[in-house]
Design a protein around this nucleic acid. Structure first.
Lengths: 148, 148
DNA sequence: CTGAAACCTGACGTTGACGTCAGAGGCTAG
DNA sequence: CTAGCCTCTGACGTCAACGTCAGGTTTCAG
């Protein structure tokens, strides 16, 4: 039976997809606490995995480590002072505004794409061939890999 | 009658809300071109205002200056090579994924807020937002939205 | 027991989008 | 003409979230 109660930093890194360095950094910033074995090695419970994912979510939402450190206790426990609740609301509204802005940006790009997709006239080729064929490797199906 | 055909950098900064330094930086990165007076001072047409706003939108969407420089010609003119169109689509999808992630993060914060809003023991009014926090343990976490 | 792999603590390097300062010149009201 | 503000070109500073390297210790398979 798998009694994996704790794991070391390498395994947490592998399972969470973030680097070992990043995990140490999170601890340094007070975002992630780790138990230590006698020799000083970090040990994490399985719940740390979820916590790391939460941290990543908040980072992706544009929060700074300081802000995350202030909000994490509210998210994990239900401990909430009036200030922390105000903070939560403020960040939620900020994210909301961010979503609105991104939606507008996306719609604008969609409009551009739609315009270029159905050229009502002819294809406007720019005569500016400066470095044009430099990276024309893939030709058609250049599938861009985006960072998740 | 207002014959304000051009403006100097200070006015563009004031009207667009970005700093003078940022405008010079945009030019340096090839995002914004400026006419020069005989003595070397930058002059911008009114259309520059809109362009700066567009640049800001794309920056806010997480694009780098290099990416913006590559996409701006497609957005302003309709000139689009197959590569640039692929680029546009890729960035659109990236923004879409970003919106999805932010939405999940916001919903999570909403759940937390709802939980802290109703203090334990007090049942003055029932917050029936239970459907929200059901997806707590998500394992994989990052779900890609591919709606191409 | 032993050697490779994983881990530890510093500490410096990187990158992007600017901020900031210095020194020199331009433009305009009075 | 002069004062005062605006603008110019470098060039260095900043900040966050790590990357990377160095030098040493721990763990574990064989």
């Amino acid at each position: 039976m798998v009694m994996e109660v704790t794991m070391r930093i390498g395994e947490l890194a592998a399972r969470s997809g973030v680097s070992v360095r990043a995990l140490r950094y999170y601890e340094e910033q007070g975002l992630l606490k780790a138990g230590r074995s006698g020799s000083g090695q970090r040990h994490y419970p399985d719940s740390a995995l979820e916590r790391v994912h939460l941290i990543q979510m908040l980072y992706a939402a544009g929060l700074s480590s300081r802000t995350i450190a202030e909000l994490l206790p509210c998210v994990e426990a239900k401990a909430s002072t009036p200030q922390s609740r105000a903070r939560l609301l403020a960040e939620r509204d900020r994210i909301d505004a961010q979503i609105s802005g991104l939606t507008r940006t996306r719609d604008r790009l969609d409009a551009v794409i739609a315009a270029t997709e159905s050229p009502a006239g002819c294809c406007a080729w720019e005569a500016d061939a400066e470095g044009a064929d430099a990276e024309a490797v893939g030709g058609g199906g250049a599938t861009r890999v985006v960072r998740a």
